[in-house]
Amino acid sequence: MKGLNRKRFNIWPYLLVTPALLIVIFVVFLPVINAIIMSFKSYDLRRPFDIGFIGLRNYKEVLSDPLFWDALNNTLIWVVGGVGLQFFFGFILALLLHQKFRGRGVVRAVSLIPWATPGVLIGLMWKWIYDGNYGVLNDILLKLNIIDEAIPFLSQTSSAFPSVIVTIIWQGIPFFAIMLLAGLQGISQEMYEAADIDGASSAQKLFRITIPSLKNVILTTLLLRIIWVSNSVDIIFNMTGGGPSYSTQTLSVYIFNKANVLNLGYASAMAIILMALLAFVAIPYIKKSFKEG
């Protein structure tokens, strides 16, 4: 009887998960371990014979580097401003796309274009839009007599960073719109009908039904987008390269620039610091997931 009651071990679930697990190990886990090891080494490929263990020297140099702190400050502005406005406008777009109107399916499909466009192409496209000589934005502003002469948006420190933030906002709005729209479609209409019977206003339904019902979707999408935007390199690199005068250099761009000049140990130390900061941001979500599990 014991043998009959004992559950049979099924190896198939483990075999099906194995390919994905191997990809994660070789594409994510091993490179992270390698980056951690390199962060404790003098790993400058311009001096290949000086590669060796140096302990925490890279981390000490990073923490005493004023460009690192400037890049970290830019990253904070880049993430808070970019992701915050992406969410705000994405939520408005989701509410609009949730309404019934003719051509709604086409509008939903078209709204995905910024999100589906590669970051490199977005950077090049918006670089042309902002160009001080032949950019379309300057052309429109001049024809409307809003400005008297062309503005080099990406060539001056006062306007370069706001310009790239506008670009990342434009790219990320569809992500929040589609994710929140999916959440909106999962909310029971009976709650809204009951609220209408009780005489609730649109604002009351928004803050007492819609937003609380979307709490998990909002938390997940914000966390994912914070991580993606923090690691984003392609848009800034193709638009400004981190300039002018490092005014648009975020931490991920600074890491990329350091790795580009083959100072891999220093770049790895900054990458590990960025990873630790993002892990700290993700802790509330991880705790919440474990509690629900």
Results as ranks from 00 to 15, higher is better:
residue 87 F to A: 10
residue 219 L to F: 01
residue 162 P to K: 03
residue 212 P to D: 09
residue 24 V to E: 05
residue 138 N to R: 00
residue 71 A to R: 01
residue 154 L to Y: 02
residue 293 G to Q: 13
residue 197 I to V: 15
residue 135 G to S: 04
residue 115 W to M: 06
residue 183 G to P: 07
residue 214 L to N: 00
residue 204 Q to G: 05
residue 117 T to Y: 02
residue 19 P to W: 12
residue 103 G to D: 11
residue 175 F to H: 09
residue 33 I to T: 03
residue 264 L to G: 11
residue 273 I to T: 12
residue 196 D to K: 15
residue 33 I to M: 08
residue 13 P to D: 14
residue 151 I to T: 08
residue 98 H to A: 08
residue 246 Y to H: 03
residue 158 S to A: 14
residue 238 N to M: 10
residue 207 F to A: 11
residue 3 G to P: 01
residue 257 N to W: 04
residue 124 L to S: 06
residue 269 A to G: 13
residue 196 D to M: 12
residue 103 G to H: 10
residue 86 Q to T: 02
residue 177 A to V: 13
residue 258 K to S: 01
residue 53 F to R: 04
residue 145 N to S: 11
residue 208 R to T: 02
residue 80 V to N: 09
residue 42 S to D: 09
residue 192 Y to L: 07
residue 274 L to C: 06
residue 105 G to D: 15
residue 193 E to D: 15
residue 88 F to A: 13
residue 47 R to G: 13
residue 229 V to I: 15
residue 113 I to A: 13
residue 235 I to K: 05
residue 142 L to P: 05
residue 262 L to F: 15
residue 214 L to Q: 03
residue 168 I to H: 00
residue 24 V to G: 00
residue 124 L to I: 13
residue 170 W to N: 08
residue 271 A to I: 06
residue 217 V to A: 10
residue 53 F to L: 14
residue 42 S to N: 14
residue 211 I to Q: 09
residue 112 L to C: 12
residue 61 E to K: 07
residue 48 P to K: 01
residue 207 F to Q: 09
residue 215 K to F: 11
residue 98 H to W: 04
residue 89 F to D: 03
residue 93 L to G: 01
residue 252 S to V: 01
residue 189 Q to Y: 00
residue 12 W to D: 03
residue 144 L to H: 10
residue 249 Q to P: 00
residue 290 F to W: 12
residue 143 K to R: 12
residue 87 F to L: 14
residue 25 I to A: 14
residue 211 I to T: 11
residue 19 P to G: 11
residue 54 I to R: 13
residue 161 F to M: 13
residue 186 G to A: 07
residue 203 A to Y: 14
residue 256 F to A: 08
residue 96 L to Q: 09
residue 260 N to K: 10
residue 232 S to G: 07
residue 22 L to T: 08
residue 73 N to C: 06
residue 39 S to C: 09
residue 144 L to M: 11
residue 126 W to A: 00
residue 41 K to M: 14
residue 127 K to Y: 06
residue 282 A to R: 02
residue 26 F to T: 07
residue 196 D to H: 15
residue 288 K to F: 10
residue 45 L to F: 05
residue 82 G to T: 03
residue 109 A to E: 10
residue 51 I to K: 04
residue 94 A to V: 01
residue 92 I to L: 15
residue 193 E to R: 15
residue 154 L to H: 06
residue 196 D to T: 04
residue 155 S to I: 06
residue 34 N to E: 02
residue 158 S to G: 15
residue 38 M to V: 04
residue 224 L to T: 14
residue 96 L to P: 05
residue 45 L to M: 05
residue 276 A to K: 04
residue 73 N to A: 07
residue 89 F to A: 09
